[in-house]
Amino acid sequence: MEAIVYICLAAMLLFGILAVMHHSILKSAIWLALASASLGVLMYTMGAVWSSLFEISVCSGLVTVIFVSAISLSNTDKGELGKLYEDKKRMSLLPVVLIAGGILLFAAAALQLFSVPDAAPAAAGAEDFAEIFWNSRQTDILGQMIVAITGSVAVVALFKERDIL
């Protein structure tokens, strides 16, 4: 199980760097979603089922949908955005970030900083997950649905350039 923790940490680092460094804002949003999904898996592995649920559904799912909608509706010239994000100094710092991240991961593994709980959620079974999702957190499902609708309306209200009439 601990291997999954370190794989997730490495994936988060990689996807996070890609999200920051990529020239296309659309692809950056997708890399960010993958970084967030890795964090969700990490939380689930470490026993924080509720947090993982919200991380995956809200941060990785909903926020990405809103980002992509906003980008597509704002009609910004992708070429111009690409130019804005071209920054050679940041590119030169990339190896430093990768090496520092690798050292931190290696140190964490050597010192066994991340211990996976005995009753990991995978062992607890899918039934607990369903119980939490559908029963204990039912109001948050309603909340998430409304957040999704509000986010969509907000994107249309603020980013749609064409007048309604």
């Binding site: 109001t139 948050d140 909340g143 998430q144 957040v147 509000t150 309306v153 907000a154 209200a157």
Partner: peptide
């Protein structure tokens, strides 16, 4: 309390866009 926070944020987001729209 967490659901209270979620719905409070929905109010905040809707209000923000209503002011800026």
């Amino acid at each position: 309390l967490f659901s209270l926070y979620v719905f409070m944020e929905i109010i905040g987001l809707s209000s923000f866009v209503l002011i800026a729209m």
